[in-house]
Amino acid sequence: MTQRIQVLTRYFFRRLVFSFSGLIYMILALAFWAVLFPPTQQTPDIAYYVIVIGAFGAAISFLSTLSIASRANEAENYPVIVRLPGRIEYLTAVLVSALLFTLILQLLVALLALFRGPVLTTGRFLELPPLWLSVNITFATLALHATDFVTAGWSRVNIYGILAILLFGQSNSAPASNWLAGQMANLSRFFNAHGWPSIAQYASRAATWFATRGPDSLREFFGVVFWPFRAMSEGSLVGRFQPVQALAPAVLLLYASILFLLAADFFANKDLDFTE
């Protein structure tokens, strides 16, 4: 199993590296470094270094997973996938090759950014692998669900729909809460008018709750999924992680595991319709 995954990983990795997309990603990485870490300017902050290169890794892992998955989804691979005892090996190879490609570009930018860049102490250096890798892995597994390669039925719409709702709910909690407060107030008036004062009272309380504590509670509710990202960026900005914040990479890896298991299930049970 390990040999087969290694062989396929090497194959997909080479396909991306020696392709036009691979060249574009390389140019993108250098442009990113030149724009965000210009060597002619003053030394950037270490927190800036950790967060910006972490975000770069997230973007590249997402994009490179899409690129490799589209190559893995070509009809020329039918004879190869037929030979595998399980499709999960194929999917693992796609994920690992994308992560490997991301890691190389991220290391390149990270090393270049150290040129007239921040002083990286051993303590801060040891923070980097769990922070960057957990983000990369999460974004790569998320990207798998965006591809035709893995998606089955409405799975893509469901996963990205839930994500969009959570993002929307988090950033628009105040208007949403005010709207809900208005609806509850209307409901309260309706029940009062129809002679149900006890139910009207519950609706009135709910309207008050939405008007006062609603925005914060809704933001917390919708934003709970994004807590690891907040915790990691806060810890990086402060320069030290609270015990709870230190769990953030592990939580992200848990998300990644769930997303990968879902992807593996979709991929194993779908009809392969590779592009010709």
């Binding site: 070509e74 009809a75 020329e76 004879p79 030979r83 010709e276």
Partner: peptide
């Protein structure tokens, strides 16, 4: 163990 030769001749 299966060896499969597809109809379409597509290769890397």
């Amino acid at each position: 163990r299966i060896g499969y030769k597809p109809e379409r001749l597509l290769f890397p």
